[in-house]
Design a protein around this nucleic acid. Structure first.
Lengths: 336, 336
DNA sequence: TTGTATGCGTTATCAC
DNA sequence: GTGATAACGCATACAA
């Protein structure tokens, strides 16, 4: 390779490979992108030279030229919330398998930051997976107009979406509690703008109504461990014998708060979580509604990639099911 | 705006804005990138037109032209391991603050996948934060030669790195256990190729030696909850009265395995974790060595961005300290 | 089968 | 201050 075409420090470009291999730049390009158009010997030669130079096609330049960036964005409200890492992992695996890179955005549960992240990613990614969006519907639709968007745990007609359906798991939970003799059940709220929260509450309402059980509501300010501890006085004041929490983290906080208050679980009060992300590790092990987050992440990316491949999936609705996992935080009513 | 220059469906380009605002492309570019070179009235005019058209500068084209992509890569072994989400969150925040986008890579603890991810990101990002790399040193250096790399929890001379130093926390743990009368302590291994593991074991060795305590080692195949449960028989066979686990997840599994085996904690055996990521939520609450993962993530990104800004930080070594958090999984030796 | 020329959307250089 | 124009690295019609 001649020093005239080889700049040191920088990564080699297609031009330098072309010079070294004594072919045109187009041939080098084809050797990587469309080898079937070239004579096998040419492909081999070019690739050998490229390898020796340490050449790798520049994804940015390729994207600019083709319009295919081979990247997607994944925006979540809070990566530190244990529901999301498995989902992110699933999404990342699916994207990786298809040769796509993943931009990660953490909105910190803040709609304005979510909006800003989405704007930043525009024009830099082929599409976005928007998880548990806190944006209002109209704004989500505006973003979806600019490029393909797949929603997770947000149900907007006309937009492809992956939904974790709490119906089965929640209904099983109510049956389980009813069978244990509970007549008055408390639901501890999640974020008001969360689709998951709304679904869970609604499902719970239906199931309790259908069985003639009472349902009371307790507020938690955020779905955090500390908020779970903090809501325990309200919970106890409600007079319920069983509590269903918006998610496992909240439930875990509730368990801690109850232990501190000297309330026995499940003797005095039964507790049910949701998501099954930490459930096996609590004390007592938490009865919870299990949700396959990894599967949801993979499904969302597959849906998005299908969308990019021109499949008509505009109104696709991929539903993943839930079920109750009974552990030791639930027991007979009034056993304490 | 004339329909001739306005293509529907696609995002507007600088060319269309220029036409609509009756200025040159260069002027539009300056209105966004270097407004101080323009008359304020021009800036305002161009920006108004751009806003009306919904124009946003294309980050990819800009990157190609300037060589500054405004993106970094963040590669972790397993996003589902609770040590990493806070780190990722911190890194993401710091990057976001500087206007950088973050590519996330999950290597699934597999060196080959880590290598492939790194290769993919090359030429697409300005630099990479490589967390708990499982790659051999030479390979890491090769990657670092191609573009700036900041290591987290890997100590390679000549490369900028952020290290969570277990010395203080681990030493405090040994002091704590010694004060409780423990003479024989078990360490439950982490991944052999993990720098964190090596450091923790070494520190533990030094501290126990210095105090004339015995140290035995127990193998766990992976730092997982299940592996923690599985290693309990070995742990019990070792005859130690206290166990220090590589990390909290492992410790949590050990707690579960011990409970199942009818071993009282801390009555029969004391358990210490590491990282303090789930520690407050275990039963009993886990005594652990706390590590500020979020701070490490932020520091790594700041270091990387400094590197890109030409600061001479090639051999920087940013150390974050640990300390022991005493909860309820440790108690007097032989109290059971 | 391979080479030539052009464009992707932007910024930078150099005029004016 | 602002405009024309050449890169940036690659892919792809079109030619040969």
């Amino acid at each position: 390779m001649s020093e005239s075409t080889r700049r040191r420090g920088a990564a080699p470009t297609i031009r330098e490979v072309a010079a070294a291999a004594r072919v045109s730049r187009a041939t080098v390009s084809r050797a990587f992108g469309r080898p079937e158009l070239l004579r096998p010997a040419t492909v081999a030669h070019v690739r050998a030279v490229a390898a020796e130079l340490g050449y790798l096609p520049n994804a940015v330049a390729r994207g600019l030229s083709t319009g295919r960036y081979a990247t997607i964005a994944l925006v979540v409200p809070d990566i530190a919330n244990p529901f999301f890492p498995p989902l992110v992992r699933g999404a990342q695996q699916a994207a990786d398998l298809a040769g796509y890179g993943v931009f990660l955005g953490d909105s910190d549960e803040d709609p304005a930051r979510e909006d800003a992240l989405l704007a930043r990613f525009t024009g830099q990614v082929e599409g976005v997976v928007l998880v548990s969006s806190r944006l209002r519907a109209a704004r989500v639709r505006e973003h979806a107009e600019r490029r393909p968007v797949v929603l997770v745990n947000r149900d907007l007609a006309g937009l492809p979406r992956v939904l974790v359906d709490p119906t089965r798991g929640m209904t099983e939970a109510v049956d389980h509690l009813a069978a244990l003799g509970h007549r008055r059940i408390a639901y501890v709220n999640g974020p008001r703008t969360s689709w998951a929260h709304q679904q869970r509450r609604r499902t719970l309402r239906r199931a309790t109504d259908a069985r003639g059980l009472e349902l009371v509501t307790v507020d938690a300010r955020r779905p955090t461990y500390d908020a779970g501890i903090a809501c325990v006085p309200d919970l106890l004041a409600g007079g319920a014998t069983a509590a269903v929490a918006f998610d496992d983290v909240l439930a875990q906080g509730i368990l801690a708060g109850l232990a501190e208050a000297g309330v026995d679980v499940p003797g005095d009060l039964s507790v049910v979580g949701c998501d099954d992300v930490v459930a096996a590790t609590t004390a007592p092990p938490l009865t919870t509604v299990s949700a396959p987050a990894g599967q949801a992440g993979r499904a969302a990316v597959d849906l998005l990639l299908g969308l990019l491949g021109n499949d008509d999936l505009r109104d696709a609705r991929y539903v993943v099911d839930t079920r109750l996992v009974v552990r030791s935080s639930t027991g007979p009513a009034g056993a304490g």
